[in-house]
């Protein structure tokens, strides 16, 4: 089972790099949003520094949506799930592995860029470490919840927009906790509560989302 899991993980990470530019698309979108923020709000450093954490988290959430449409769609149309179900892994595990591959291939890269984006938008350099940790946790929950949305909308022709509509309300808590964490750090308030809540939500997503995704895949495949 471990061998099968690793084989699937390896395949999906490899594909996320090769299919249609993969993370480049999400990274490009993320950086474009970052560039649009000062262009729409004006370049005053004080204004930007105040909105930087919130807007960075919003951009991170939106950029995480981008490649969700193709998370299961391609394999669903190609019939790969017939092979995947012929192995020993249950659909829940398949869902988890594919979401993790999506995270490693896209979300984690966006998370690595997050400190840089925040600093460019005017956050202090000292916040870099904390923003990285928060973005890693947040992007993990984005990928897991995104998997639920992607599996639920499988086979419908309105894929992308529908996923965004289904998934974004569930992105509310991590965005609040993540942006709140940075806000607290910048104002010198204690950060443990926000960090704890963000971590808890990611764990909650890790426990719940694969089950829901597996159930949705089963219903789509039958």
């Amino acid at each position: 089972m471990l061998k099968a899991s690793l084989a699937l993980l390896k395949r999906d990470i490899g594909l996320s790099w090769s299919r249609g530019g993969g993370p480049i698309l999400a990274v490009g979108f993320y950086l474009t949003l970052m560039a649009m923020i000062p262009l729409s709000l004006g370049p005053e450093t004080q204004v930007l520094a105040r909105v930087a954490p919130g807007l960075t988290w919003l951009s991170l959430a939106l950029a995480s949506l981008l490649s969700l449409e193709r998370l299961f769609e391609r394999d669903y149309e190609d019939g790969l799930f017939d092979i995947l179900r012929g192995g020993k892994l249950p659909l829940e595990a398949i869902a988890l592995i594919k979401c993790l591959a999506q995270w490693i291939g896209t979300g984690l890269i966006l998370a690595l860029l997050t400190p840089m984006v925040m600093i460019i938008l005017g956050a202090p350099v000292e916040a870099a470490g904390l923003s990285l940790v928060a973005a890693v946790l947040g992007s993990l929950s984005f990928a897991l919840i995104g998997g639920v949305g992607a599996s639920l909308s499988l086979g419908s022709r309105k894929g992308g927009v529908l996923i965004a509509l289904l998934v974004l309300p569930f992105y509310v808590p991590p965005v609040i906790f993540g942006a709140g964490l940075m806000q607290a750090y910048l104002t010198g308030a204690p950060i443990t509560q926000a960090l704890g809540l963000l971590g808890a939500y990611s764990l909650f997503a890790l426990a719940l989302c694969p089950i829901a995704t597996g159930a949705a895949l089963r219903s789509a495949l039958n």
Binding site: A4, S18, D75, D82
Partner: peptide, 29 residues
């Protein structure tokens, strides 16, 4: 106990034949 082979070949167009075969082999044991 069984292999099911449907109409769809489940081959990803972006991957090479040896990669796909290796994956099928590793995944199915």
């Amino acid at each position: 106990y069984s292999h099911y082979l449907g109409h769809a070949e489940a081959l990803n167009p972006a991957r090479r034949v040896d990669q796909e075969l290796q994956f099928h082999c590793d995944y199915l044991g």
